[in-house]
Amino acid sequence: MIDHAHDLDCVREATERLLTAVAELDNASLAEPSRLPGWTRGHVLAHLSRNADALVNVLEGRPMYASAAARDGDIEEGAARSLDVQLSDLRESAARFQELGAAPADWARTVELRNGVTDSAARVPFRRWAEVDLHHVDLGIGYELEDLPAEFTEREIDFLTQRFARHKDVPSTGLTSGSGRAWTTGGGAPGGPVEVEGTAPDLLGWLAGRRDGSRLTVRGGDLPQLPPL
């Protein structure tokens, strides 16, 4: 069972880690490339702020973004802002999300995200946690997949393997971590079963498109090419 209150606490902790790390940067470093193609660190930070507001929209029953073009425009417009403005926006948008999350609500209700995707309201805090912690890694400022909380890593692997389950482009695939945890995914494409083994951070990196999977051990075929998130 999803504990949204626990996840909200984890979002708060992840946000504080992010704010503390970003506060050590300077304006010049925000203009440098992030690990996401085509985005500077400033783009990543602007996205994180607008994502917090977008998830407030979701929880309040409004469209997540006015449009795809509006989403992209807001990120582009916010990318070049100075460090102090970025930090203020991150803090304030995060506070709005936390304030709404603390209010009484029907957390069992279904909400709509982008592109017609639906989910339970209770899972929204975990979705925000993923945004904050994975994009912290994407900044390329010393926070790596190995630094993620173990709980988050295993739960995000759970989430992503469910997302790719029965996907038409992914053959049946079994994953095993060094700790002995096992998952299955794919199954909608011919071939397999493919067995993939590695550390939990490396498995997450491959599933989330943050690593190429070269450090994974693969048996029964080639490492599947996963669709973009």
Rank of each mutant, 00 (worst) to 15 (best):
P125I: 00
R181P: 01
C10S: 10
R17W: 15
E99T: 13
L160H: 01
M64N: 05
A52H: 13
L19T: 02
V111T: 04
A105D: 09
I2L: 05
A66P: 01
M64T: 08
H136V: 07
E144C: 08
I75G: 02
R17P: 02
R163T: 12
A80V: 10
R114I: 14
D138H: 09
A150H: 08
A70W: 09
D222R: 07
D202K: 02
D106S: 05
V137I: 11
D138W: 11
R50I: 15
E156F: 10
V58T: 04
N27W: 09
P190H: 11
D138M: 09
D169A: 15
E13C: 04
R181T: 03
Y65N: 06
A66M: 04
P104H: 04
G188F: 11
L55H: 07
L45V: 09
D53R: 08
D84H: 14
S67V: 09
F97V: 03
T40G: 06
L87E: 04
H6I: 01
I141L: 15
A189P: 03
T173Q: 03
D119Y: 08
A69V: 06
R81H: 15
S34F: 11
Q98P: 00
E16G: 12
R166I: 02
N51C: 09
T184E: 15
V196L: 03
A68I: 08
S120V: 12
A122Y: 02
S49G: 15
L113M: 10
S49C: 14
D3H: 07
S82R: 14
L148Y: 06
D119T: 14
N115K: 11
P171A: 07
A14K: 00
R62A: 15
E76H: 10
P125F: 03
A31T: 12
E32A: 15
E131S: 08
R215C: 07
I157V: 09
L30H: 04
R91E: 13
A208F: 00
D72I: 07
L226W: 00
L18R: 00
A23K: 05
D212S: 11
A189F: 09
A130H: 06
A14N: 03
Y65S: 03
D84I: 13
E197T: 10
P171D: 05
G178E: 15
A79C: 10
A105R: 04
N115I: 07
E32I: 06
Q162V: 11
R166F: 15
R109V: 12
A54T: 01
R96S: 14
R91N: 06
D158W: 07
L145F: 12
G38L: 11
F164R: 00
A68K: 08
R123S: 03
E77R: 13
D3S: 02
N57I: 05
W39K: 01
